[in-house]
Write a protein that binds this DNA or RNA. Structure first.
Lengths: 249, 249
DNA sequence: CGGGACTTTGAGCAAATTCAACCATTGTGG
DNA sequence: CCACAATGGTTGAATTTGCTCAAAGTCCCG
């Protein structure tokens, strides 16, 4: 199960030429890091013509697995958690989305997972049908989506390695480093890394329990690997050692 | 981290019109279940013009993670295992590929995982650069690749739920059912399901050890859920109960 | 028939979970 | 403005699931 992927963005995009003063996407906070970044000003106008922004409160559901896929979105501000459930309530968080990330995949026109706002959230939404129609005339956009999908697949494989083969300690170290790297890519603080999600969310992302996540963080702190400025604000003191630990070295 | 996906194939493709007696893809075993299935005869000719078949022996490496991505392939016959390693040798198998599946994704022109032939294997390979060039003139093919990628993402999320939240029993039950379903999609035997991979491979796919996989299979047999015709030939006796078990009900 | 690889089974162990209590922070109503 | 409830986070003790280490069984293939 694997697909072509030579179109991946590696890290942040090159900054585009500034848009004219009248361009509606001019003030977009994520224009240079989102899927729009490959488009020319006139193409962007066509995309903008079908977009609407929508805001969500923390913990507000965005859609549920099985819902008909009507929108496809870019995260403009805030963070999202994606998850799947087992019938008895066990939850696996399959990803966290941040500014610039793309949301809305759906096989068979149905969402395959649920999505909730993690924090106050702003999305730039496109009706799926209209976007599909646009793809026919904006091949760069389609190429870009394929690249985004391929990147996600790589991330998914990495997460499978984490879930299947890493210890609690390695999982937590990997998680903190990943969060830090992603914040850096968005131009946010990489070192005191901010954790917008709860311990329960982290646990459900790493295949652990809340208690184990908490204990492991405490343990990393006691060993001087990290410092807790607040429970949602962590400084990575020993980056190199953390990277080794994350890879099981 | 999620992407548009309204182009997914759901299950087997509708059978295409037969190709003329001279068409080089006429005898292709997987033409109707692979990525080529959306193409018209003349488009298929263009694709065929850049393809070569290549065979591999069981356990022969196809490529390693980090290798430059030079080919992209369809599996014509046999099976493939994809995996990633931790530096100390722990292995996570991220997928098994069978006839009709697509192989070759690579972010940044590099393979993000390693691939080995599981059985005797025949691939239909395309040089990546030439295929990319073809994508510009065969938009249906690109659409199809995006659909394939989206399908894979759904499968990856499913596997994350399995790895992070299912018990050994649920993992093994899920695995057997999935294998059975996929065999059915390819038109192979769904009930005595054939397992071309070793217990160690299954373990590394499910995030377990060989011993646990073996014990769990024994246990399922003792409970009358399955019957072992051979160690690589399993009949699912209680399908409904297995489906419930796989979902943790 | 023998050797090697793979699978199964057994016993003891350890990592992570479960269950439970306690602590810290925050927001609210008296 | 303070008390206190509520939520989320941390810590502890006991338990359990799956792992490790070890040995025996099975199947192929030469």
């Amino acid at each position: 199960m694997s697909v072509l992927n030579s179109f991946a963005r590696g890290g942040p995009q090159p900054r585009n030429a500034p848009l004219g003063g009248e361009h509606p996407c001019r003030a977009c906070e994520v224009r240079d890091i989102c899927v729009c970044a490959v488009l020319e000003p006139d193409e962007l106008l066509r995309l903008n013509a079908i977009s609407m922004t929508k805001s969500f409160l923390p913990n507000q559901p965005i859609f549920y697995a099985g819902d008909e896929s009507v929108h496809v979105s870019n995260v403009v501000q805030g963070a999202v958690r994606l998850y799947n459930l087992l019938p008895d309530g066990r939850r696996q968080i399959t990803g966290f989305l941040f500014a610039g990330d793309f949301l809305g995949m759906a096989a068979n026109q149905e969402y395959a997972y649920s999505a909730e706002a993690l924090t106050a959230l702003k999305l730039c939404r496109f009706p799926r049908r209209k976007l599909e129609a646009l793809l026919d005339v904006l091949p760069t956009l389609e190429r870009r989506l394929l690249g985004a999908a391929s990147n996600e697949l790589v991330a998914a494989q990495d997460q499978m390695l984490l879930l299947g083969r890493k210890t609690a300690r390695e999982k937590v170290a990997s998680f903190l480093l990943r969060l830090s790297r992603r914040a850096e890519e968005r131009g946010e603080s990489a070192d005191p890394v901010y954790l917008p999600m709860s311990r329960a969310d982290i646990a459900d992302y790493l295949g652990l329990t809340t208690e184990t996540v908490s204990r492991t963080i405490t343990n990393l702190r006691e060993n001087g690997m990290i410092a807790l400025l607040a429970s949602d604000q962590i400084s990575i003191a020993e980056g190199a050692a953390m990277r080794d630990m994350a890879e099981g070295v």
